[in-house]
Computed example of a mutant assay.
Amino acid sequence: MTTAQDQIRAELKRLSNQGVNLFNAMQVEQFPENMESHFTQVLKKDYQAFLKTLPVFAQEYQIWYSAAQAVIRQFLPGRLQDFINLYEQPKGRKEIRSDNYVIEDYLKKVIITTGFDKKIVASPPDAIAVFQQQVNILNAVFDRLDNSLFEIRQVLQAELLDQELQVARQLAKGQFIRSAGALCGVILEKHFNELCHVHHIKVSKKNMLIKDYNELLKKHEVYAFETWRFIQYLGELWELSCRNKKEMPTAEEINDLINGTEKFIKTVF
Rank of each mutant, 00 (worst) to 15 (best):
Q62D: 05
F269A: 07
F57N: 11
K246F: 15
T40K: 14
T2M: 11
V130C: 01
K206C: 00
L138S: 00
E11Q: 11
L145H: 03
E29M: 11
V135A: 09
H220Y: 08
V56Q: 07
T3M: 11
P77N: 04
E253L: 12
D105N: 11
V167Q: 01
K211M: 12
N147L: 06
S16I: 12
S16G: 09
N100T: 09
Q166I: 00
M1H: 02
Q41F: 15
I96F: 02
I187R: 01
F264I: 07
E189T: 00
I177M: 02
L156C: 03
K44M: 05
D256H: 04
N255A: 08
E104M: 12
L76N: 15
Q27S: 04
K206N: 04
A129R: 06
S16L: 10
Q154M: 07
Q30V: 08
L165Y: 11
V222H: 03
C196V: 01
T250G: 14
I201K: 02
A70C: 09
Q5I: 15
G174V: 14
G260F: 03
Q30F: 08
V110M: 13
R9W: 11
K91H: 11
Y47F: 15
V28W: 15
L209R: 15
N193H: 01
P90K: 00
V268W: 09
I120M: 08
K108T: 08
R169P: 01
F131V: 00
K266S: 06
I137Y: 01
D143M: 04
K218P: 00
F50D: 07
L12G: 08
W238Y: 10
Q81Y: 13
P125A: 05
F264M: 08
K109Q: 12
W228Y: 09
